[in-house]
Design a protein around this nucleic acid. Structure first.
Lengths: 132, 132
DNA sequence: TTCTTTGTATCAAATACTTAGTACATTGAT
DNA sequence: ATCAATGTACTAAGTATTTGATACAAAGAA
């Protein structure tokens, strides 16, 4: 099975990114619960008609993001959604996340894209240089 | 003058995109008011040490987005933030800045540095993108 | 008109990204 | 100990993106 994952080779979004996005969505939505094992890179690649390395790349980025975890022989399993990577300060965290979400919501309502929201934050932080 | 614009050639973000992002941010924040004239593609390119076509590309995309307007001999001037069918765009902008400032204030209160605030925003942007 | 300054168009070259294939390392099962 | 299934590393090839240079078009100024 493909675990509900599909790729469109004609899309401008590269296959590895489509996979990463779909797995992230499925985990966020709850369709892939923590502990669920994902298909192996080879089997998913075969089902999708692409190379194993392409699936491996998606898995690697997902692991870096903390969404999944790979064990050599045991395959790859879902961990869950990461908690924004904060020094876990229960109340402070919830408050902060609520604040950033309000900012995002207002930005989206104003028609701004992700890059613009990041740029505005930088300007307000007083950073003049773009990084990353 | 560069109107407060700078590019980092080592960045993974291409120069034309850095320019587009910075101009968008400066307009959204109010540092570039409607009517302000931007530097010519040649002078900004010379100041930044890049080719005129690169600046031109950024300007073209900004014009397509409705943020700026170009007149042949008169150069390029700021129009303002496009209002996405919302009440007054001035209010929307002020609202947005207030929101990002609240976020920054809460983050600072929690002892977070600039990098952490940017990282949290990125994580949340990734999440909200899935919900669309 | 003629000049000068502006943005635009185009295209070749450079650069970066993505993929597929192959060989390798790891690890639990037999 | 051996096997088999897993993820990983590496690399060459193809593809896409980005840039820089040049020539062009528009339009106000002299």
């Amino acid at each position: 099975m493909t675990a509900g994952i599909a790729v469109d080779l004609r899309s401008a979004v590269p296959p590895y990114e489509q996979i990463r996005l779909q797995v992230t969505s499925l985990i966020a939505v709850g369709s892939l619960a923590a502990g669920t094992r994902l298909p192996s890179v080879r089997s998913l690649a075969a089902d999708l008609g692409i190379a194993a390395g392409t699936v491996a790349r998606a898995y690697k980025e997902l692991e870096l993001a903390g969404l999944i975890e790979t064990r050599r022989r045991n395959g790859t399993v879902v961990v869950g959604m990461p908690d924004a990577g904060l020094p876990s300060d229960g109340a402070v965290t919830a408050d902060l996340i609520a604040a950033v979400d309000r900012y995002i919501a207002k930005g989206r309502a104003a028609g701004l894209d992700d890059g613009a929201l990041e740029g505005i934050l930088r300007v307000r932080l007083g950073l003049s240089r773009l990084e990353q």
